[in-house]
């Protein structure tokens, strides 16, 4: 297990390094010059060149990359071109919103989707099993921003129960207000996420229900609940965990939409601002941290799968990918 852990960590680091190179290079192939955003109407070529020198984009790309890496090694994500303020504290501050949002939405989605998906499979011939299945299918087609707007219209504008958006200026120092601010966004993300999760849980459960080993366990006298608990759950959870990992990662990266609808100062809105302003250090900082988070999520999903399923233990990177 230890050697696996080390190999898997090595794999994570290599992935991270590759991803850093790719994101750094991709950014620099985008059309447009960040120096343009810093200079005013009527700027002369000399002034634009000086702006380039000031932010360091006049240097060769490899040199810029090495500079960036050497800063990264000390935990420094650089300084924003536009605000000339350091990026790292900004990213950390934004994580205060995005992490609780994503985490809570994920938990809520699992709490809804696992029982609902199981029920949709186990009672697939009843009206509510079919209804669950149909609703989740419909749910997959609902865009996050639309659902967000509907929830705002109902619960904030009409009923006035919750704020329509924004986050308290004091952040989590004002826990009540911070919590209230996240209720609707969390529900929005969780509902959309659970719609697709229900489908996966349902199909994984259907597989298990029709499997030989479950029938055999039942034939050997095990009760349905016990057979499900000992054999079914384990087998069904392997593919579901893979999907959970991917869902969590895509929610983290997709936070930009829900953050915009609810006016939340999260990582996604920071990324959007950075892109609009060609602020490379900000974009790199956000993407680097998100990439790291996504890789860690994948790592965690692999580990959990291996603990559950001994058959995977011979392989480096597990599961039904």
């Amino acid at each position: 297990m230890l050697s696996y852990l080390l190999r898997r960590l090595g794999f994570l680091l290599v992935s991270l390094a590759l991803a850093s190179v790719v994101l750094f290079l991709l950014l620099r192939t985008l059309p447009g010059d960040p120096a343009n955003a810093l200079t005013s109407v009527g700027a002369t070529p000399e002034q634009i060149e000086a702006a380039r020198q000031a932010i360091g984009t006049d240097k060769p790309v490899p040199e810029q990359f090495v500079h960036w890496l050497s800063q990264l090694a000390t935990g420094d994500l650089g300084t924003s071109f536009v605000s000339s303020l350091p990026v790292a504290p900004e990213v950390t501050a934004r994580l205060d919103v995005t992490l609780p949002l994503t985490g809570a939405a994920f938990l809520l989605a699992v709490l809804v989707a696992v029982p609902a998906g199981f029920l949709a499979a186990y009672r697939s011939r009843t009206w509510y099993g079919a209804a669950l299945s149909a609703v989740s299918q419909l749910g997959i087609a609902v865009p996050v921003f639309w659902l967000g707007m509907i929830l705002i219209a109902v619960f904030a504008l009409n009923l006035g129960w919750l704020p329509a958006g924004g986050f308290p200026q004091d952040g989590w120092a004002d826990p009540g207000a911070a919590f209230e601010a996240l209720v609707l966004p969390v529900i929005t993300v969780a509902l959309v996420m659970s719609a697709s999760l229900i489908r996966y849980v349902r199909s994984a459960t259907l597989d298990v229900l029709g499997s030989d080993y479950l029938r055999t366990a039942r034939a050997l006298g095990s009760s349905f609940g016990r057979a499900m608990w000992r054999h079914g759950l384990r087998n069904a959870s392997v593919p579901v965990i893979s999907v959970l990992g991917m869902e969590l990662a895509s929610t983290l990266l997709g936070a930009v939409v829900v953050e915009s609808v609810f006016a939340l100062p999260g990582l996604g809105s920071l990324l959007a601002t950075g892109i609009a302003q060609h602020d490379y250090p900000v974009i790199q900082g956000v993407l680097f941290v998100s990439t790291l988070a996504v890789l860690l999520i994948g790592f965690a999903a692999d580990l959990v799968q291996r603990l559950i399923d001994p058959r995977l233990r011979g392989r480096l990177s597990g599961g039904a990918r």
Partner: peptide
């Protein structure tokens, strides 16, 4: 990156992004 403040800029009216956006 520890960079100097942009050494130029500000010529006439609004920065182009504000002109545009």
């Amino acid at each position: 990156m520890k960079l100097k403040k942009p050494a130029v800029v500000g010529v006439a009216s609004a920065a182009v992004l504000s002109l545009a956006l």
